[in-house]
Design a protein around this nucleic acid. Structure first.
Lengths: 335, 335
DNA sequence: CCTGGTATTGTAAGCGTTTACATTATTATT
DNA sequence: AATAATAATGTAAACGCTTACAATACCAGG
């Protein structure tokens, strides 16, 4: 069923049918009705590819995200989609996984689809390698690229992020000020924000003259797991450290810390204080509830889309919008 | 940059370039190399819409999902994407939200994109209204439709699901057999599986001669919320019931139940047993850990994609594949 | 060096839309 | 009723690719 079939059945030209489809006002109401009826009757839907050929823009924004089942990324994607939709844009989501080789393919894939802009969620693209950065540079020649929670200075690349370095610095500082100097730092994914968080943590410890903080940092390698596996990991790799605090780059890791404390019969927060990151629903699921950093995801996604819309409208927009995270205190800390 | 530009720069015809792009074997290796080099050099990506016009299939499967930030749906989408990708299919994800009116638009949208098949995740489409079902019927005339966790008997519609009715029946039965007759049933989204779970719950109570079970059922209306809000909801609407058990249609609701118990100084599981559904990561985040129903999501998604691939290959495939859920016992129950 | 067969490459016709421009119908003005 | 102005509709080219079919290049055997 094509536009020709419809035009024939409605007794008009394809141009008129096209005008009806696209809501042009240059159609007589009676004609519009006639055509609409035929379209309705035969359940005709215009072919998106043919439209894509004709139209300059399809009002579509590509979203690239490593893993849509990650609590935090999923939330980000959800907010972005809602916000885009509210502004008349479709979104096209690709989940690349954490495999670097695949990312390039996905980037090509999504760029081949006449998108008006591209949003990179989760900052896994901004690695330390020049190779990863190259993808962004390539992409930015075609469409504006928006980075959520990552910073990368390049033409046509716009960044919206939480200042994770400072936020983590403040977070660690408040724990140290609370009297805890032996802090286990847990992290998993290596990403832009992950690196910043770590840097902030280290800076805080250094500012208090705490030496060899690296001894207290543990990289948890599994991407999908549960709190018990994380607790076991802590027991295996860090038990001998006798830390009195845990700061984690992610709420789930922190919950693993609480779990660990329970297994060791340590009281949280008396014997062990625990702080997570992202302020997800997990924070209120555990006992005690988890102190966590709210990195303003909703604010970030809102700002990001606003910036993108501005760019698309040809306005001059800030290349970098930085927000501060905020520590939300709950039962897992006493300070 | 089009195929013409490349053909010109490489000194060959567009057909040859097209053959290189599509990996045809009818190209001399030296020519292939020459063309590939030019493509590489200029960073050319074929226009997806033009390809879509020419090609019969783009090896793309559409996925429709209400809310990608829902823990359970996100996981389902993730598994599906992984599985599809492993089998050489792209996936196109649309998150419709829970608004019925929008769904039709999304369906049209995704159907207009020359997809080879459509997967409906989360069963929100199979409502009680004929209107909702109509969408599936319409769609099934174009491409095979795969339902995850929903059943709908119609040509070209294939269903892969957990037998939630029986699973919930068994779950409730085991709680009643454990000596608990006053059970608060919590549910939120109205969906196919939601209706089935409820039916199973009711059947179990009836089979034990428990009267007026409806008095003990509560619908929690917010879609996004945290455990504390749910706990407050229980206190507001059900405190006077003096139930000794909670069965929830979703893990988060169940965690809300545990939270409620803590606030009331009730011991879980001694004073109150709690069972969730979906066996998500939340089950091991709370204290005590949550007994929950594993509805075999990974098995379901695997089977679903296998069935879809079979259908696309022209094989005769089962219209309905039903699996049994399994109660995973943890600390929130004593039986 | 020619012949026939095969491997490679080129030509051109779609694919289903949009839209500039041409044409025709309608309405207003005199 | 004729004309001008305007509104509605139609025609045909363009979008960038795939692919059937045509044309050409290459190679082995005589």
């Amino acid at each position: 069923m094509t536009i020709y079939d419809i035009s024939q059945k409605a007794g008009v030209s394809i141009a008129t049918v096209s005008r009806v489809i696209n809501g042009s006002d240059k159609v007589r109401p009676s004609t519009r009705q006639k055509v609409s009826d035929v379209i309705e009757k035969y359940g005709y839907t215009p072919n998106a590819f043919a439209r894509g050929m004709g139209l300059q823009s399809l009002h579509t924004i590509g979203i690239l995200c490593a893993d849509s089942s990650d609590l935090f990324l999923a939330k980000a994607v959800f907010y972005l989609e809602q916000e885009l939709q509210a502004n008349g844009y479709e979104s096209l989501l690709c989940c690349t996984g954490y495999n670097l080789d695949l990312k390039k393919n996905y980037l090509d894939l999504i760029l081949s689809k006449k998108i008006d802009g591209l949003i990179l969620v989760g900052s896994h693209f901004i690695g330390t390698t020049e190779e990863e950065n190259q993808y962004i540079k390539d992409g930015s020649h075609r469409v504006p690229i928006m980075l959520l929670n990552a910073a990368f200075d390049y033409p046509n690349v716009y960044c919206t992020l939480c200042d994770d370095e400072t936020t983590m610095f403040e977070t660690a500082k408040s724990m140290i000020s609370g009297g805890i100097r032996d802090i286990l730092y847990l992290y998993n994914i290596r990403s832009y924000s992950g690196i910043k968080k770590m840097a902030g943590f280290l800076r805080a410890l250094q500012s208090f003259g705490i030496e060899n903080p690296q001894n207290y940092m543990r990289f948890y390698p599994n991407d999908s797991s549960d709190a018990n596996q994380i607790a076991a990991f802590i027991e295996d790799t860090a038990k001998e450290l006798h830390f009195q605090g845990i700061i984690a780059a992610d709420d789930l890791l922190a919950v693993g810390g609480i779990k660990y404390a329970q297994k060791q019969n340590l009281d949280v927060p008396k014997d062990l204080s625990v702080i997570g990151y992202n302020n997800s629903i997990l924070t209120t699921c555990c006992t005690p509830e988890l102190t966590s950093v709210d990195n303003r995801l909703e604010t970030l996604t809102h700002r990001l889309v606003q910036t993108l819309l501005g760019v698309l409208a040809g306005e001059e927009m800030p290349k970098m919008s930085v927000f501060s995270g905020k520590l939300i205190k709950r039962g897992s800390t006493y300070f």
